[in-house]
Design a protein around this nucleic acid. Structure first.
Length: 477
RNA sequence: CGGGAUGUAGCCUAGUGGCUAAGGCGCCUGCUUUGGGAGCAGGAGACCGGAGGUUCGAAUCCUCUCAUCCCGACCA
């Protein structure tokens, strides 16, 4: 306890690890690349889940659960899919003490098992659309792992939908991308760019991959969610056809979309500071921590005063009263800051005399004395302000670190000296994207919607050929 | 997979061939304290990552091995 957190300026990745461990969000577990999500971290994930789940239900989706184990042959049915995932699959070869006839893959994603079932369930256009989501764990054998951001096993949500037409499936893909954008911005206070991924970055087996992309405090990009238009690729691989209203037979059109516990990592890296975690109020498991300040003579009165406030707030807020008398107030202040609680309420004898309490903002450190009778209302307003100012600050940071660049030397210099998001015209060729990656380590994070029009008349920043896109380049997680 | 680092009590660290492995934090008991990480007294807790070797003697030297972290390559 009371351990020093490495300052961001010294080492961003040490800082990140220190926050995760010291704020008790997660801990390393015995198997390489895996982690335990501790109660403080899991509570954040639960809040994310419940907000997202409600949004999925509102858009007509139902939850279901498909098995962890997938016959190895299923993965092989879609050519790009198997090529993309085979290297990172864990395979079960033995069960019940015997070697299995067919090895079973632990799901790296569930498209194949789901589409094998959709084949049974879909016969007619009347069965469509089929809109299913599942919350589960998946396993990808990653060579390099980082707490929350990339772990061998992680928790996520995967939506899989089937539609009667390409247009409808495309609409669904974009609808869910929009759900993710809203969630990131409204709940996580995280501004994101939306758009389509380049060929090199798209999902194995998709026709198009769309993503929300955020900037972290070290100016690197983080893909926070993806939504895929799968075309008829999986329907063809698994032979899923349906009778159209006109009596014909057609393959089903598909989408899939997901966000994972990586979002917790995004949340940490977007808002936290050298004192510890900073959580946006909407996702904070505890919104308000009350710290009474008392001496022996005043203990009873102050605790009664604090508890009265606690009881008043309880109905409306997620609040804890830290009545422990072993730790000093200063210790508690630091502790609740480390845990990222948005508002701390200090109340001691001086406050009692004035019928007030002191509200302290986690994001700014600002101390606000308020009349105790007004505290409940003021806290509500303050939580909203904190939520908003976290978003504003993150947006301001992103804007300040996004640069329009129109020649290759500047692009090289930008990633050499500054880093951030570079917006530049791009020909659309695989070679030029590969060259930028090789020389700057930056990749195309996203081709923002409407970028083609903007690119008209411009020349590719790498090759000088006529540009087809305005692309966002950045180094990424 | 390549490079680097690290494994000594729950955590951090000292100990680089020689007495019973040392200190800080945390933990337990008691007292005292409490407006920005409190103090005193007492206490529990370690086969020094593992195996083998060298030696009268190994946490320390050698060999092998395991694990984790960081950087890079790879990567929905």
């Amino acid at each position: 306890m009371a351990e020093r957190i490495t300052p961001r300026s010294e080492s961003y990745s040490d800082w990140y690890v220190d926050i995760v461990l010291n704020a008790q969000l997660a801990d390393y577990s015995p198997v390489k690349g895996t982690m335990v999500i501790r109660p403080r971290g899991y509570a954040v994930w639960e809040r994310m889940q419940s907000a997202l789940d409600a949004m999925f239900k509102e858009t007509g989706h139902q939850n279901a659960y498909f098995p962890l184990l997938i016959p190895e042959s299923f993965l092989k049915k879609e050519a790009e899919h198997v090529e993309g995932f085979a290297p990172e699959c864990a395979v079960v070869t033995h069960g019940g003490g015997e070697e299995l006839e067919e090895p079973l893959v632990i799901r790296p994603t569930s498209e194949t098992i789901i589409w094998s079932m959709y084949k049974k369930w879909i016969q007619s256009y009347r069965d469509l659309p089929l809109l299913i989501n599942q919350w589960c764990n998946v396993l990808r054998w990653e060579k390099r792992t980082r707490l929350f951001l990339r772990t061998t096993e992680f928790l996520w949500q995967e939506g899989h939908t089937a539609h009667a037409s390409a247009e409808e499936a495309r609409e669904e893909t974009l609808r869910m991308l929009e759900v993710y954008r809203r969630f990131a911005e409204e709940y996580m206070a995280l501004p994101v760019l939306t758009g389509v991924k380049s060929e090199a970055e798209k999902f194995a087996g998709a026709v198009n991959t769309y993503a929300i992309e955020a900037m972290m405090q070290d100016r690197k990009a983080l893909q926070a969610g993806t939504s895929h238009f799968l075309g008829q690729n999986f329907a063809k691989a698994f032979d899923v056809t349906f009778q159209t209203a006109e009596g014909g037979l057609d393959h089903v059109w598909a989408t899939s979309w997901g966000v994972s516990t990586r979002l917790v990592g995004a949340l940490i890296m977007a808002h936290s500071d050298d004192k510890g975690l900073v959580l946006p109020p909407k996702l904070a498991p505890v919104e308000v921590a009350i710290v009474p300040i008392f001496k022996n003579q005043t203990k009873t009165e102050v605790l009664a005063y604090a508890d009265k406030l606690n009881q008043t707030l309880k109905g409306s807020y997620r609040v804890v009263l830290d009545a422990d008398d072993n730790n000093s107030p200063g210790w508690k202040f630091s502790q609740w800051e480390l845990y990222g609680v948005p508002i701390r309420v200090e109340c001691g004898p001086k406050d009692m005399q004035n019928n007030q309490v002191v509200l302290v903002r986690r994001d700014s450190g600002e101390k606000l004395p308020v009349a105790i009778s007004e505290a409940p209302q003021r806290i509500g307003v303050l939580l909203q302000q904190i939520q908003q100012s976290l978003y504003d600050r993150a947006l301001e940071f992103r804007e300040a670190n996004t640069r329009d660049i129109d020649n290759y030397d500047d692009l090289l210099a930008f990633f050499e000296n500054d880093g951030g998001f570079a917006r530049a015209a791009w020909s659309g060729s695989v070679e030029s994207e590969a060259r930028i990656k090789a020389e700057t380590k930056a990749t195309i994070r996203v081709l923002p919607f409407g970028n083609e029009q903007e690119a008209a008349g411009k020349r590719c920043v790498v090759t000088g050929e006529p540009a087809r896109h305005m692309a966002i380049f950045a180094r990424s997680y």
